[in-house]
Design a protein around this nucleic acid. Structure first.
Length: 304
DNA sequence: TATATAGGCGTAGTTACCTCA
DNA sequence: CCTGAGGTAACTACGCCTATA
Protein backbone atom coordinates (compact mmCIF):
# COMPACT_ATOMS: atom_id res chain seq x y z
CA UNK A 1 0.00 0.00 0.00
CA UNK A 2 1.33 3.34 -0.88
CA UNK A 3 0.98 5.36 2.18
CA UNK A 4 2.03 8.90 1.52
CA UNK A 5 4.51 8.92 4.26
CA UNK A 6 5.12 12.37 5.39
CA UNK A 7 8.72 12.96 5.87
CA UNK A 8 9.64 16.39 6.94
CA UNK A 9 6.74 17.80 5.20
CA UNK A 10 6.81 14.96 2.73
CA UNK A 11 4.26 16.53 0.61
CA UNK A 12 2.38 14.00 -1.25
CA UNK A 13 0.69 17.01 -2.55
CA UNK A 14 1.13 16.69 -6.23
CA UNK A 15 1.01 20.17 -7.53
CA UNK A 16 0.13 20.88 -11.08
CA UNK A 17 2.18 19.62 -13.85
CA UNK A 18 1.34 20.00 -17.47
CA UNK A 19 0.81 16.32 -17.77
CA UNK A 20 -1.52 15.52 -14.99
CA UNK A 21 -3.78 18.46 -14.92
CA UNK A 22 -6.62 16.78 -13.26
CA UNK A 23 -4.71 14.78 -10.84
CA UNK A 24 -4.78 16.76 -7.73
CA UNK A 25 -3.65 14.80 -4.80
CA UNK A 26 -4.10 16.77 -1.72
CA UNK A 27 -2.77 14.10 0.44
CA UNK A 28 -3.24 15.20 3.94
CA UNK A 29 -0.69 12.84 5.26
CA UNK A 30 -2.81 9.87 5.98
CA UNK A 31 -0.02 8.34 7.89
CA UNK A 32 -0.40 11.11 10.32
CA UNK A 33 -3.96 10.39 10.90
CA UNK A 34 -4.09 6.73 11.47
CA UNK A 35 -7.50 5.24 11.45
CA UNK A 36 -6.44 3.14 14.30
CA UNK A 37 -3.81 3.78 16.81
CA UNK A 38 -2.53 0.32 16.39
CA UNK A 39 -2.27 0.23 12.67
CA UNK A 40 0.77 2.36 12.32
CA UNK A 41 3.22 -0.03 13.66
CA UNK A 42 5.83 -0.95 11.24
CA UNK A 43 8.00 -3.99 11.24
CA UNK A 44 10.51 -3.93 13.96
CA UNK A 45 14.18 -3.98 13.62
CA UNK A 46 14.68 -0.76 11.80
CA UNK A 47 17.43 0.64 13.85
CA UNK A 48 21.08 0.07 13.35
CA UNK A 49 22.57 -1.70 16.26
CA UNK A 50 24.67 1.17 17.41
CA UNK A 51 24.28 4.87 17.44
CA UNK A 52 27.50 5.18 15.53
CA UNK A 53 26.17 2.91 12.87
CA UNK A 54 23.09 4.98 12.52
CA UNK A 55 24.96 8.21 12.63
CA UNK A 56 27.25 7.00 9.96
CA UNK A 57 24.19 6.69 7.81
CA UNK A 58 23.11 10.18 8.61
CA UNK A 59 26.53 11.69 8.47
CA UNK A 60 28.71 9.78 6.06
CA UNK A 61 31.51 12.05 7.09
CA UNK A 62 31.81 10.90 10.64
CA UNK A 63 34.67 13.23 11.37
CA UNK A 64 32.54 16.23 10.59
CA UNK A 65 29.87 14.78 12.75
CA UNK A 66 32.21 14.37 15.64
CA UNK A 67 33.49 17.86 15.25
CA UNK A 68 29.99 19.17 15.07
CA UNK A 69 28.93 17.16 18.04
CA UNK A 70 31.97 18.15 20.02
CA UNK A 71 31.40 21.78 19.41
CA UNK A 72 27.79 21.45 20.27
CA UNK A 73 28.38 19.43 23.35
CA UNK A 74 30.83 21.89 24.72
CA UNK A 75 28.03 23.04 26.88
CA UNK A 76 26.39 20.88 29.41
CA UNK A 77 24.44 18.08 27.89
CA UNK A 78 21.45 18.09 30.11
CA UNK A 79 20.05 15.17 28.28
CA UNK A 80 22.67 12.78 29.35
CA UNK A 81 20.96 10.77 31.96
CA UNK A 82 22.66 9.78 35.12
CA UNK A 83 24.23 6.39 34.94
CA UNK A 84 21.52 5.03 37.15
CA UNK A 85 19.02 5.63 34.47
CA UNK A 86 21.09 3.79 31.95
CA UNK A 87 21.26 0.93 34.33
CA UNK A 88 17.58 1.10 34.72
CA UNK A 89 17.14 0.95 31.02
CA UNK A 90 19.56 -1.89 30.78
CA UNK A 91 17.65 -3.78 33.35
CA UNK A 92 14.49 -3.12 31.44
CA UNK A 93 12.79 -1.69 34.44
CA UNK A 94 10.88 0.68 32.31
CA UNK A 95 9.86 -1.86 29.78
CA UNK A 96 6.77 -3.26 31.44
CA UNK A 97 5.33 0.17 31.47
CA UNK A 98 7.26 2.58 29.44
CA UNK A 99 4.82 5.30 30.26
CA UNK A 100 5.46 5.81 33.88
CA UNK A 101 5.60 9.50 33.41
CA UNK A 102 2.77 9.40 30.98
CA UNK A 103 0.71 7.91 33.70
CA UNK A 104 0.84 11.33 35.21
CA UNK A 105 -1.40 12.59 32.57
CA UNK A 106 -4.84 12.36 31.22
CA UNK A 107 -7.01 9.36 31.47
CA UNK A 108 -4.12 7.32 32.58
CA UNK A 109 -3.72 9.38 35.66
CA UNK A 110 -7.25 8.61 36.53
CA UNK A 111 -6.88 4.95 35.87
CA UNK A 112 -3.42 4.49 37.22
CA UNK A 113 -3.51 7.07 39.88
CA UNK A 114 -1.98 4.68 42.35
CA UNK A 115 1.49 5.15 40.98
CA UNK A 116 4.23 5.29 43.46
CA UNK A 117 4.98 8.90 44.10
CA UNK A 118 8.62 8.20 44.79
CA UNK A 119 9.01 6.66 41.40
CA UNK A 120 7.54 9.71 39.84
CA UNK A 121 9.91 11.95 41.68
CA UNK A 122 12.82 9.89 40.54
CA UNK A 123 11.46 9.94 37.06
CA UNK A 124 11.16 13.65 37.07
CA UNK A 125 14.53 14.21 38.53
CA UNK A 126 16.26 11.88 36.14
CA UNK A 127 14.47 13.28 33.19
CA UNK A 128 15.92 16.62 33.96
CA UNK A 129 19.34 15.24 34.30
CA UNK A 130 19.81 16.88 37.63
CA UNK A 131 20.09 15.60 41.09
CA UNK A 132 17.27 15.40 43.52
CA UNK A 133 18.60 18.11 45.75
CA UNK A 134 18.69 20.45 42.80
CA UNK A 135 15.16 19.60 41.92
CA UNK A 136 13.55 20.43 45.16
CA UNK A 137 10.74 22.34 43.59
CA UNK A 138 8.23 20.80 41.29
CA UNK A 139 8.97 23.10 38.39
CA UNK A 140 9.88 21.26 35.25
CA UNK A 141 13.23 22.04 33.79
CA UNK A 142 13.38 22.22 30.08
CA UNK A 143 15.85 19.83 28.63
CA UNK A 144 17.26 20.15 25.20
CA UNK A 145 18.06 17.20 23.05
CA UNK A 146 21.54 17.20 21.70
CA UNK A 147 22.15 17.58 18.03
CA UNK A 148 23.03 13.99 17.46
CA UNK A 149 20.06 12.81 19.47
CA UNK A 150 17.81 14.96 17.36
CA UNK A 151 19.47 13.73 14.20
CA UNK A 152 18.90 10.13 15.15
CA UNK A 153 15.34 10.80 16.11
CA UNK A 154 14.76 12.60 12.85
CA UNK A 155 16.24 9.75 10.93
CA UNK A 156 14.00 7.28 12.69
CA UNK A 157 11.02 9.51 12.15
CA UNK A 158 11.68 9.43 8.45
CA UNK A 159 11.56 5.69 8.59
CA UNK A 160 8.49 5.46 10.75
CA UNK A 161 6.55 8.32 12.18
CA UNK A 162 5.26 6.09 14.90
CA UNK A 163 7.10 3.59 17.02
CA UNK A 164 6.05 0.35 18.50
CA UNK A 165 7.07 -0.26 22.10
CA UNK A 166 10.03 -2.35 21.07
CA UNK A 167 11.37 0.31 18.79
CA UNK A 168 10.72 2.95 21.37
CA UNK A 169 12.70 1.09 23.97
CA UNK A 170 15.53 0.38 21.61
CA UNK A 171 15.73 3.95 20.51
CA UNK A 172 15.53 5.25 24.03
CA UNK A 173 18.32 2.99 25.05
CA UNK A 174 20.35 4.00 22.08
CA UNK A 175 19.92 7.67 22.82
CA UNK A 176 20.21 7.42 26.56
CA UNK A 177 16.75 8.80 27.01
CA UNK A 178 13.70 7.48 28.68
CA UNK A 179 11.13 5.78 26.47
CA UNK A 180 8.66 8.40 27.53
CA UNK A 181 10.93 11.09 26.16
CA UNK A 182 11.17 9.32 22.85
CA UNK A 183 7.44 8.93 22.83
CA UNK A 184 6.90 12.59 23.52
CA UNK A 185 9.40 13.56 20.90
CA UNK A 186 7.56 11.54 18.29
CA UNK A 187 4.25 12.99 19.37
CA UNK A 188 5.54 16.49 19.06
CA UNK A 189 7.26 15.72 15.81
CA UNK A 190 4.05 14.44 14.32
CA UNK A 191 2.26 17.52 15.49
CA UNK A 192 4.88 19.78 13.94
CA UNK A 193 4.75 17.90 10.69
CA UNK A 194 1.02 18.13 10.59
CA UNK A 195 1.09 21.80 11.32
CA UNK A 196 3.52 22.48 8.52
CA UNK A 197 1.52 20.31 6.19
CA UNK A 198 -1.57 22.27 7.08
CA UNK A 199 0.21 25.50 6.32
CA UNK A 200 1.32 24.17 2.96
CA UNK A 201 -2.16 22.94 2.17
CA UNK A 202 -3.62 26.25 3.17
CA UNK A 203 -1.22 28.08 0.93
CA UNK A 204 -2.03 25.76 -1.90
CA UNK A 205 -5.76 26.18 -1.53
CA UNK A 206 -5.30 29.90 -1.43
CA UNK A 207 -3.57 29.72 -4.77
CA UNK A 208 -6.37 27.52 -6.06
CA UNK A 209 -8.87 30.12 -5.05
CA UNK A 210 -6.93 32.89 -6.70
CA UNK A 211 -6.61 30.96 -9.92
CA UNK A 212 -10.28 30.09 -9.97
CA UNK A 213 -11.18 33.71 -9.41
CA UNK A 214 -8.98 34.69 -12.27
CA UNK A 215 -10.50 32.01 -14.49
CA UNK A 216 -13.96 33.17 -13.57
CA UNK A 217 -13.09 36.73 -14.43
CA UNK A 218 -11.71 35.65 -17.77
CA UNK A 219 -14.83 33.65 -18.60
CA UNK A 220 -17.11 36.50 -17.64
CA UNK A 221 -15.22 38.73 -19.96
CA UNK A 222 -15.50 36.19 -22.74
CA UNK A 223 -19.24 36.00 -22.24
CA UNK A 224 -19.53 39.74 -22.46
CA UNK A 225 -17.57 39.82 -25.68
CA UNK A 226 -19.73 37.14 -27.20
CA UNK A 227 -22.87 38.97 -26.19
CA UNK A 228 -21.55 42.09 -27.80
CA UNK A 229 -20.87 40.18 -30.98
CA UNK A 230 -24.35 38.77 -30.95
CA UNK A 231 -25.84 42.21 -30.96
CA UNK A 232 -23.69 43.31 -33.81
CA UNK A 233 -25.58 43.20 -37.23
CA UNK A 234 -22.35 42.60 -39.04
CA UNK A 235 -21.99 39.43 -37.15
CA UNK A 236 -25.19 38.09 -38.63
CA UNK A 237 -24.03 38.99 -42.09
CA UNK A 238 -20.98 36.92 -41.66
CA UNK A 239 -22.71 34.03 -40.06
CA UNK A 240 -23.52 30.83 -41.85
CA UNK A 241 -27.08 29.66 -41.65
CA UNK A 242 -27.84 27.53 -38.70
CA UNK A 243 -26.06 24.30 -39.12
CA UNK A 244 -28.17 21.27 -39.74
CA UNK A 245 -26.97 18.16 -38.16
CA UNK A 246 -28.26 14.69 -38.49
CA UNK A 247 -28.23 12.34 -35.65
CA UNK A 248 -28.03 8.66 -36.29
CA UNK A 249 -30.97 7.08 -34.45
CA UNK A 250 -28.94 4.02 -33.79
CA UNK A 251 -25.77 5.27 -32.28
CA UNK A 252 -26.97 8.82 -31.76
CA UNK A 253 -23.86 10.13 -33.39
CA UNK A 254 -24.21 13.52 -34.94
CA UNK A 255 -23.04 13.98 -38.47
CA UNK A 256 -22.45 17.26 -40.22
CA UNK A 257 -23.56 17.19 -43.83
CA UNK A 258 -21.05 18.02 -46.49
CA UNK A 259 -23.50 20.48 -47.93
CA UNK A 260 -26.70 21.84 -46.66
CA UNK A 261 -28.93 19.84 -48.92
CA UNK A 262 -27.62 16.40 -48.21
CA UNK A 263 -27.76 15.24 -44.73
CA UNK A 264 -26.07 12.07 -43.75
CA UNK A 265 -28.13 9.15 -44.76
CA UNK A 266 -28.49 7.00 -41.75
CA UNK A 267 -29.06 3.99 -43.91
CA UNK A 268 -25.59 4.27 -45.24
CA UNK A 269 -24.38 4.71 -41.74
CA UNK A 270 -26.27 1.84 -40.24
CA UNK A 271 -27.88 -0.44 -42.79
CA UNK A 272 -29.85 -2.20 -40.10
CA UNK A 273 -31.50 0.88 -38.81
CA UNK A 274 -34.12 1.77 -41.30
CA UNK A 275 -37.28 2.22 -39.41
CA UNK A 276 -36.26 5.21 -37.45
CA UNK A 277 -35.95 8.55 -39.07
CA UNK A 278 -32.89 10.63 -38.45
CA UNK A 279 -33.42 13.47 -36.12
CA UNK A 280 -32.41 16.85 -37.29
CA UNK A 281 -30.89 19.12 -34.79
CA UNK A 282 -30.60 22.78 -35.29
CA UNK A 283 -27.70 24.25 -33.55
CA UNK A 284 -28.41 27.53 -31.95
CA UNK A 285 -25.15 29.15 -31.17
CA UNK A 286 -26.81 31.28 -28.55
CA UNK A 287 -28.64 28.57 -26.81
CA UNK A 288 -27.42 27.66 -23.42
CA UNK A 289 -24.55 25.45 -24.02
CA UNK A 290 -24.28 21.96 -22.73
CA UNK A 291 -22.77 21.70 -19.37
CA UNK A 292 -19.09 22.16 -19.59
CA UNK A 293 -17.33 19.09 -18.42
CA UNK A 294 -16.08 19.73 -15.03
CA UNK A 295 -12.40 20.33 -15.08
CA UNK A 296 -11.40 20.29 -11.51
CA UNK A 297 -8.60 22.54 -10.65
CA UNK A 298 -8.11 23.48 -14.26
CA UNK A 299 -7.74 27.00 -13.12
CA UNK A 300 -4.73 25.91 -11.25
CA UNK A 301 -2.92 25.82 -14.49
CA UNK A 302 -3.14 29.29 -15.84
CA UNK A 303 -2.73 29.59 -19.54
CA UNK A 304 0.62 30.80 -20.50
C1' DT B 1 -22.46 -13.72 21.95
C1' DA B 2 -22.98 -9.18 23.92
C1' DT B 3 -21.22 -5.97 27.20
C1' DA B 4 -18.40 -3.49 30.54
C1' DT B 5 -13.87 -2.32 31.77
C1' DA B 6 -8.96 -1.53 31.64
C1' DG B 7 -5.04 -0.39 29.23
C1' DG B 8 -2.44 1.46 25.40
C1' DC B 9 -1.76 4.78 22.03
C1' DG B 10 -3.17 8.54 19.18
C1' DT B 11 -4.29 13.66 18.65
C1' DA B 12 -5.23 18.57 19.92
C1' DG B 13 -4.33 21.99 22.84
C1' DT B 14 -1.66 24.06 26.49
C1' DT B 15 2.13 25.10 29.56
C1' DA B 16 6.71 26.01 30.81
C1' DC B 17 11.25 26.54 29.77
C1' DC B 18 15.13 27.86 26.80
C1' DT B 19 17.45 30.50 23.23
C1' DC B 20 18.27 34.38 20.63
C1' DA B 21 17.84 38.77 18.38
C1' DC C 1 20.71 43.40 31.57
C1' DC C 2 15.96 43.21 29.94
C1' DT C 3 12.44 41.66 26.91
C1' DG C 4 9.48 39.60 23.54
C1' DA C 5 9.10 36.02 20.04
C1' DG C 6 9.76 31.55 18.54
C1' DG C 7 10.93 26.72 19.27
C1' DT C 8 10.08 22.69 21.71
C1' DA C 9 9.87 19.26 25.67
C1' DA C 10 6.44 17.93 28.62
C1' DC C 11 1.81 17.78 30.20
C1' DT C 12 -3.47 17.42 30.08
C1' DA C 13 -7.71 15.89 28.36
C1' DC C 14 -10.06 13.06 25.62
C1' DG C 15 -11.21 9.62 21.85
C1' DC C 16 -10.58 5.18 19.69
C1' DC C 17 -9.25 0.42 19.59
C1' DT C 18 -8.28 -4.05 21.56
C1' DA C 19 -8.03 -7.64 24.95
C1' DT C 20 -10.25 -9.75 28.63
C1' DA C 21 -13.43 -11.08 32.17
Amino acid sequence: MMVGKDQDLGLSLSLSSSQNHHLLQLNLSPSLVPSSANQCYSPSGIFPRTKQALLSLIYPNTESLRAETRSFLKGIDVNRLPSTVDCEEEAGVSSPNSTISSSLSGKRSEREGNNNGDELEIERASSHGISDEEDGDTSRKKLRLSKDQSAILEECFKEHNTLNPKQKLALAKQLGLRPRQVEVWFQNRRARTKLKQTEVDCEFLKRCCENLTEENRRLQKEVQELRALKLSPQFYMQMNPPTTLTMCPSCERVGVPQNASSAVDPRSHHQLVQSRQPRHITINPWAPSAPIPHRPFDALHPRS
